[in-house]
């Protein structure tokens, strides 16, 4: 506790009170008061190693030693309000879930340039959700034509 206070005072001294408070807000410390999950992550972060930061700003931490095995890797989401697991890009997913020991930054180099799709979080319920439209639906861009006949085209035959 004393270490936290000392660190806070040092920060105020370096950045000034205004900047310190703004940083505090951006880092989500203010939200910690309402969000116990975030507070727990923040407390967990103390003394852990920051392994990497992905392009969305999610921070990946690891703490070996006194942590229970299986709980030694975690992520602090860049988005402090509405975070969810789909915000973790594919390259970090393996590291985070103990599938591989390669970090996301290492795996990013293996990502195919030509067809590797950009990661998008799951936006279901956010207004931008992906909705499947059936083959005959007007909103399906590849809408199938179920008419089984070809109609006569007057345009190409205007001889008169």
């Amino acid at each position: 506790m004393a270490a936290i206070l000392r660190g806070a005072l040092k920060g105020i001294k370096e950045k000034g009170l205004g900047n310190f408070l703004r940083d505090l807000k951006e880092e989500g410390y203010l939200k910690c008061l309402a969000d116990g999950n975030l507070l727990q992550t923040k407390l967990h972060n103390i003394g852990a190693t920051l392994v990497g930061v992905d392009k969305f700003g999610n921070k990946y931490y690891e703490r070996l030693g006194e942590t229970q095995h299986g709980r030694h890797r975690w992520v602090e989401y860049a988005e402090k309000g509405r975070y969810n697991a789909s915000q973790v890009p594919a390259e970090w997913h393996g590291w985070l879930h103990h599938i591989t020991d390669h970090t996301g930054d290492e795996l990013l180099m293996l990502k195919p340039k030509r067809y590797g799709a950009e990661h998008r979080e799951n936006l279901s319920g956010e207004g931008e959700a992906y909705i499947y439209h059936s083959k005959g639906h007007a909103l399906n861009p590849g809408q199938r034509d179920w008419t089984r006949y070809k109609s006569w085209e007057p345009a190409k035959t205007d001889s008169q």
């Binding site: 006949y149 109609s151 006569w152």
Partner: peptide
């Protein structure tokens, strides 16, 4: 032949000669 060249809408030839 029943599936090709079918007339499916009433059409009127306009003043420009187009249907």
């Amino acid at each position: 032949g029943l599936k090709r060249q079918r007339l499916n809408d009433p059409m009127i030839r306009g003043a420009d000669g187009r249907f």
